[in-house]
Design a binder for these strands. Structure first.
Length: 301
DNA sequence: GCGTCCAGGTCTACC
DNA sequence: GGTAGACCTGGACGC
């Protein structure tokens, strides 16, 4: 017996643009079937249980199918997580107004881009973001897959959820070096998991923080392994888009697509998108990833 | 086969 | 507040 939920979507919502908004859909415990456009995801329900859900778009609604029966409370939690992951409750009205007025950027509103896929928890996004720093995407994939395989709660089909802070805190630094292949990030991951599991640091509260962005960014950078790029990437996940999260990939892409193949300074890039404030970071990211779905493939990653 | 470079950067020490 | 040098890993590249 399976459980099925149906969730309405906001105007301008694009399932494909949201799922392929950046690399997360390709990292465990997400799993994208690009041919059928089904996003699978293992959700940790707590109390020792996890469930695999299949998320798809049908007739302007999102349907979520769980591989097994779910009680009322679990169903509500799955629906909440799906809304959170797909950013269904984000209000992008003024973002779409701004890009619609700008020739060459209307496509963003027309195609419903701008909702950046995120994980059910800030903790997961934070660990993954640290795992993207100073390494190839292949290594990020390896680190995250190893974490999930070793520590994630198992769903009925054998797939695993993302590990909880508690599960991660129990492991040694050696584990993060030898099993996860996290290298010098090993102590960072261990320390982060301990601080979150002990309650010393409440990263989930960043979602509702009233701090000015500059202060919240400073708070994020108190996490070892989180610098400007990682903090600004995390800020995007909580809906603040004035930072650019510069990394080697976007710098190269800007040079290629907007600067005649020549390197551009971060200042120049920031100036280029400054008219879109306070959405400049999101316009920048959409601009850099416009071609990802031109043929509905991610061949240009 | 081996050395070097560098990926979706950050930390520390020192100015 | 700004910057050199170190840092794990593993794939790509030149020789």
């Amino acid at each position: 017996m399976t459980m099925k939920l149906s969730i309405p979507v906001p105007p301008n919502f694009s399932f494909k643009r949201t799922v392929f908004s950046h690399g997360w859909c390709d990292l465990a415990p997400f799993d994208i079937d690009q041919r059928k456009w089904v996003l699978k995801r293992v959700i940790d329900l707590g109390r020792g249980r996890a469930v695999t859900v299949a998320i798809r778009e049908q007739k302007n609604r999102i349907t979520v199918t769980a591989d097994g029966p779910l009680g009322k409370r679990d169903s509500a939690n799955v629906a909440r997580d799906v809304r959170h992951m797909l950013r269904l409750d984000d209000d992008l009205t003024s973002f779409y107004e701004i890009v619609s007025r700008d020739s060459g950027f209307e496509w963003i509103a027309d195609s419903g881009a701008g909702r950046l896929l995120r994980s059910p928890t800030v903790f997961e996004d934070l660990v993954k973001t640290i795992a993207t720093t100073n390494c190839s995407w292949a290594l990020t994939d390896k680190m995250v897959s190893s974490l999930v395989a070793a520590l994630g709660r198992s769903a009925g089909d054998g797939a695993r959820a993302f590990p909880t802070p508690e599960a991660m805190a129990r492991e040694s630094e050696i584990f993060y070096r030898n099993e996860v292949r996290a290298g010098y990030r090993a102590p960072f991951l261990k320390e982060l998991a301990e601080r979150v599991a002990s309650g010393e640091m409440d990263v989930e509260s960043w979602l509702k923080s009233e701090l000015p962005t500059s202060e919240l960014k400073r708070e994020m950078k108190r996490v070892k392994g989180v610098g400007d790029y990682a903090a600004e990437n995390m800020l995007r996940f909580i809906g603040r888009y004035d930072g650019f999260a510069f990394d080697s990939w976007v710098r190269a892409k800007f040079a290629r697509t907007r600067n005649g193949g020549r390197k551009a300074s971060d200042k120049k890039i920031a100036r280029y998108y400054s008219r879109f404030a306070p959405w400049q970071g999101l316009v920048f990211w959409c601009d850099m990833t416009r071609d990802w779905l031109e043929n509905e493939t991610v061949a240009n990653w």
